[in-house]
Design a protein around this nucleic acid. Sequence first.
RNA 1: GCGAGAGUGGUGAAAUUGGCAGACACGCCAGACUUAGGAUCUGGUGCCUCACGGCGUAAGGGUUCAAGUCCCUUCUCUCGCACCA
Length: 809
Amino acid sequence: MEKYPFCEIEKKWQAYWEENSTFSVTEDPSVPKERRRYVLDMFPYPSAAGLHVGHPEGYTATDIYCRYMRMNGYHVLHPMGFDSFGLPAETYAIETGTHPKETTEQNINRFRQQIKSLGFSYDWNREVSTHTARYYRWTQWIFLKLYERGLAYQAEVPVWFCEALGTVLANEEVVATPEGLRSERGNHPVERKPLTQWMLKITQYADRLLEGLDTLAWPESIKTMQRNWIGKSTGANVVFKLAGGEGTIEVYTTRPDTLFGATYMVLAPEHRLVDKITTKDKRREVEEYVQTAGQKSDLERTDLAKEKTGVFTGAYAVNPVNGEKIPVWISDYILISYGTGAIMAVPGHDERDFEFAKKYDLPIIQVVSRDGTLHRLDEAYVEYGVAVNSGQFDGLATEEFKEKIITWLAERNAGEPAVNYKLRDWIFSRQRYWGEPIPLVHCRKCGIVPIPYEKLPLTLPEVESYKPTGTGESPLAAIEEWVNTECPRCGGPAKRETNTMPQWAGSCWYYLRFLDPQNKNELASREATDYWMPVDLYVGGAEHAVLHLLYARFWHKVLYDIGLVNTDEPFLRLINQGMILGEGGVKMSKSLGNVINPDEVVAEYGADSMRLYEMFLGPLEVSKPWSTQGISGVQRFLDRVYRLSGRRISDTAPDAAILRLLHKTIKKVSEDTGGIEFNTAIAQMMIYINELYKLDELPRSAWDPFVRLLAPYAPHLAEELWQQLGNNGSIADAGWPEYDETLTVEDRVTVVIQINGKVRSRMEIDAGTGREEVEKLAFEAPRVSELTAGKEIRKIIIVPDKLVNIVTA
RNA sequence: GCGAGAGUGGUGAAAUUGGCAGACACGCCAGACUUAGGAUCUGGUGCCUCACGGCGUAAGGGUUCAAGUCCCUUCUCUCGCACCA
């Protein structure tokens, strides 16, 4: 028996959808807001490898959802595009001299064709690619807005520099690996280097980025990750005077209530006071330590397992609460980039300080107690409790003490409340060719001058070589005629900024360009934005939890502040699809040779089988292994459906059992499709087909609704069957079938009879039978009377239409 | 170490409010049809037992008439963070 002719069917309907622009949408004002949906996929980076099977997973899910919503009368925006700036094309250009634009566009064409081969219902009229000048014109435009609002600035910062890539990386692009810190892309070693970079002041939005999370229907895990990444903490800055000299050391602490337990202080080796306060006799030792710390990689410095090190500076500070003189140390366990770069050490109540104090034999004082009594501290007690050894504050609960001491310090100008974030400003410049040029010029007279908005886009020049200069400058720096320009303000000689933007820039706002992709005057009209935004459903991989999703939220909030968008948050609901693993549950990778190529799957099994299979594997959100045997199972199902369509269609009504199953099926498939639980919806369709398969002829009223249910899942086959049924036009325009609740319930039910919680018998009775009747019938059932004979019956529990539990003594 | 999530047949997985554990599918077994079968159709398939029956949702305990589901303890795995004071 040969397979159904999926190849012809799929080609035919893909051509039909294309010719008829079946899925293009416009901003029709007659459609009320609540009948509109914006469903978005994370657009792909068009790599040379082509689509992998992970892409179609999320794309199929949104496609099914969109088709379902359309059939239910919704107006759905479902666009696709390409995140087409990026390093691989540039690396390839360095190796071969091929222009990145050329490879990128080849890859885009391949991706588009692959995506189309799966029959997704995108509105292709809205396709955008971030590397095109008509797109990045607006990326640059947004950058200038950020600059105008003081959210983009230059700073010399220690940044991650990657020798192999010849560029600076963002914190988020550096990952810890067993071999040390490496670039996320390419796994190359990275090092810390101070360089002048463009920074975006995302920290200014830290609170709003944090608060906004509460309003979003996102996975808790992603929200938690973002919260942790932002890392807000509240406490106090406390000022310690230096003993015997002028000057102060300011520290940040979340536990000002432990101030009486501060027995020493620690500065980061890079702290500006280190040089000033170090005494003569300690200078040599301190300088040596500072230098070693500076040479250490950050991995070494942040390795938790390593023993803490430090040296005494010879200086002392005065504890403002009790006038105690305490020594000032330096150690690389204190980070210059967090808080004030200095701490008061409370070894009794901080694990790190405890470890350090033990090693260097510094005093440990207990100032917090669980119950108000003193005991020996074998480890730091970090919990909240009651103050002890704290002078007039003894007996206060931690929470209350914190408030009191902050006020006390503030009255004496020795401290104030403080808030800190782990989030750092976003290092935004890249020393690369294949990215958006930063639209600024450096004028000797006027300083940094933005290129006027109407002069955008500032396009990428052609270059001889794509290699980074290695000096920390981008390949653009080598193009004299491009770099040397006029100052837009004074007309004098000026030089262009040669840094480009990171790949994240284009993806920060692409969902807005889809709303109005041809607009020449604005990035998107306010009308189009108001019509569609916010995104109702956003589906993509969890790897973007804190990068893309945080950056995009940041830009969106800025655009909101400018008045360009109508909402404070861009993505209302987010779903992360799980990874598709190789057979056996291991990661798919080239080195393991277990990569499944979607083209081959489509060629062998068809797009509908591929779509259905990926959805049938399991819940969308979880990772699940690919199984080549498994796909033949869903193909068999589609085959059966197709063969079934060859049977005679009758106009007689289906029998009661089929009718009931039909309505149950419509109900289950409707609820599960709306709830993005596609695996169980497919299982229900299989159950239905298994039953229909037993019939010699198909009642039209049992078959027609099924074809509609199938349409979101296997759209090509459904179109074909729809046409066979004598319909003109696309099934996409057909309505979704409705079910009658009363027809979904069984009139006879099987009730199990338990004795002491164990199933001993069962009986078939009318649904809705009353309790007394059920009880009576239960005792008439076989084995029940013999098993209960001579026993005291303590209790009878009846769950209507489900179960009877007879409890005996 | 901290945070989040997950552990159910040989495999992928199902299972409203606690109410027949294993739907659906893969695989396997048997049969039918066939020159043939990696096609198709029908039936079977958690484990132990000839059977009656017993045992089963990572392990142990608890609540309950009743626990995959609720509570406690432990273990394992995945993901994220990694001295953030």
